[in-house]
Design a protein around this nucleic acid. Structure first.
Lengths: 215, 215, 215, 215
DNA sequence: GATGAATGAGAATTCATTCAT
DNA sequence: TATGAATGAATTCTCATTCAT
């Protein structure tokens, strides 16, 4: 008896995933506005009506796709980083991971930017449940390094966002430039190393005459 | 006679602007997919049919809006920066300017991200005519500073993109976090100063024990 | 063996009633066109599929509901009136009963008026099996009172329909006027008395000067 | 200039009527629930989209049809009756007129019974603007006849509703019985005469022994 | 050129009915 | 027999585009 209802639940859950996967694919390809329910149904291999047995409207599909596939999933790994390695190795690995992830998921991210920005509830939920916890984690790490004297005294919140922003912005630029980017030929590991160095040491040559220039 | 045709041209040009402004407003508010021609007509104060006397289709309006309002204008200022001040002041001013611009135009940017990414021609045109010239200029500046020994030896292309990306990514995060951001209370000039310092000197405390940690 | 099959039949019959009751409730509330099979299933506490084990289509449910719940039941009582009391008491009791019945079942009647009118077979069946037997009975009663000289010489068929129509029409008006009706505050027994007097004696004051006016 | 906009308004008004007429026809034939917008468009000889340029939803079409074609129009004549003729002639003419009108418009009435009953706003509006003014007029007439001693002392409100109800109920029964009604062969003028006599004098034979029976 | 009513293809959504379990 | 997920035709409604005035 339990097995019967368990089985049914499994099938139901599988359908849900099937539909979300299909929706993500279609949204990525055509954007939310241009995607149609028949598109999603075809991609999922189910009938149009079936979709409505699982989600009450197209917008609800979007919400579910974002919640379960786009807005949190890619961030999960980021939250689990072991803090035990040294900064440089950590940062290189992190940046490399981010770049890889972003370039692999660029299409899956871009379709939702406008939608999330426009839907206040969606934005707030995402910010509170995903973005801010992630940033807070980075902030804490930066803060503890500052306390230990390893990092210069800085505003940890701003710095964490500058670091995260650098990775995101760099990846976005790479995405936009596409094949025409001069970074295209450089291996990701090398890019990550350069970015990590930039973040750790900045651009100024230490011991050069520049510091004077700076003040 | 000439004045007659000149006048006509002026009116025509004015109408074009009127329609583009209205379209930008509506696209920003609702997104391209959800915006309708009647929306734009209402916003512009003209009849639906009039719009089709100036643009052959909704998509063409999008193209024109992006080309004339979104993709270049905000970057024009970037190209005009005087390079004669010292690095720190320059960077602070630049970053502050970018942050202000982005926060003022966030809504105007976000609606088109997905659209541009999906339209290859549009993306390529934008990249070649606007993005790359701007980045190349930054790259040259970084390159000359490296040559002069003011900056550490680095890949100028990567570094220029890391700098630009940091500003863009930071602003995007601020936009996403909105009111909930811990940076919300900090004056833009102060934020710009922190970001500029981060870019110039990195996070590591010079002379600390960290450098060993780093290697 | 017999008890097994009897039990089964009982259950089957019970289900049928369950479904018809639910259908009547839902049809009354939303009308036939807007009522859905899931609505009825929910109301009946059975699954959608179960309904199709008992009735082959939504239209068949309507037919059964009308036949067993709406078109005959409320008229059955009418046939059972004892004819042995005097006219005035009889008419008062009858009218009061009709008014009470109609006001209690108004919602159950109204949803089907259009449906029945449109379905010729349904209408004819109802007329032949229910309406006409009832009216014929009233007609006979009026006829016998005319023969005995108690009623004026009149067309018994027309008069019977005028009497029945008065009760029905009065109740319909009361239903339509709802709370706003000036009859709202009058007790049903008083209303019934007035209507019965009207039917028996008409409106004209006997012995008044009006009769001249009338000819 | 004025003629231009006047012309346009005329066309607009004509379209509105065209659509309402078509909707009335289709609603009458199929009922509101089963009627479709393409049905109405076809009947009106316009495109589906055109309908939506004039009415925002199917329900709004219903409301307009009821307001302009069904709920008031047939009642207008009733309000204009000249009160100067004698009661019998007046009542005969009135009843005949009602019977004719109802039998000609039966199909147009029946489809809306359930809809009006279910839509509180619609019902209330109809009652206040059409039904009650009409009934009040009848009530006043009955009241003045009572005062003059021509009618017996009665509750004028109840009596007016009994009279109106009789005409309505009689017509409804005739509609329901259709071809099978024994009244089918009787000319409308004769029916009206019988009903008027019934209303004026009741069923009881004056001077018969019945009055004793009645008390 | 400007206008806005008309158009109809196409979108989201509903729901009667089927059928495997 | 009971169930309820799956189906897809049918429905309401939208809107880019056309075109007569």
């Amino acid at each position: 008896m339990s097995s019967r209802s368990q089985k049914k639940e499994l099938v139901t859950e599988y359908r849900r995933q099937q539909i979300l996967d299909a929706a993500l694919t279609v949204f990525s390809r055509k954007g939310y506005g241009e995607a149609t329910i028949p598109d999603i149904a075809r991609e999922a291999g189910v009938a149009v009506g079936t979709i409505y047995n699982y989600y009450p409207s197209k917008r609800d599909i979007l919400i579910s796709v974002l919640a379960s596939r786009v807005l949190s999933e890619p961030f999960l790994k980021l939250m689990e980083q072991s803090p035990e390695v040294d900064d440089k190795a950590f940062l290189r690995a992190l940046v490399q991971d981010r770049l890889t992830m972003l370039s692999q998921n660029a299409d899956k991210f871009l379709f939702m930017v406008g939608e999330v920005y426009r839907d206040q509830d969606l934005r707030r939920q995402w910010v509170q449940e995903v973005v801010q916890p992630t940033l807070r984690r980075a902030e804490q790490r930066v803060g503890s390094r500052i306390e230990s004297g390893a990092f210069r005294p800085m505003n940890a919140g701003v710095t964490a966002r500058a670091l995260a922003g650098m990775a995101i912005g760099f990846a976005v630029l790479a995405m936009i430039e596409g094949e025409e980017s001069p970074c295209k030929g450089i291996p990701t590991s090398e890019l990550a190393a350069q970015l990590a160095d930039f973040a750790l040491m900045g651009v100024v040559a230490v011991g050069s005459g520049s510091p004077q220039n700076l003040e």
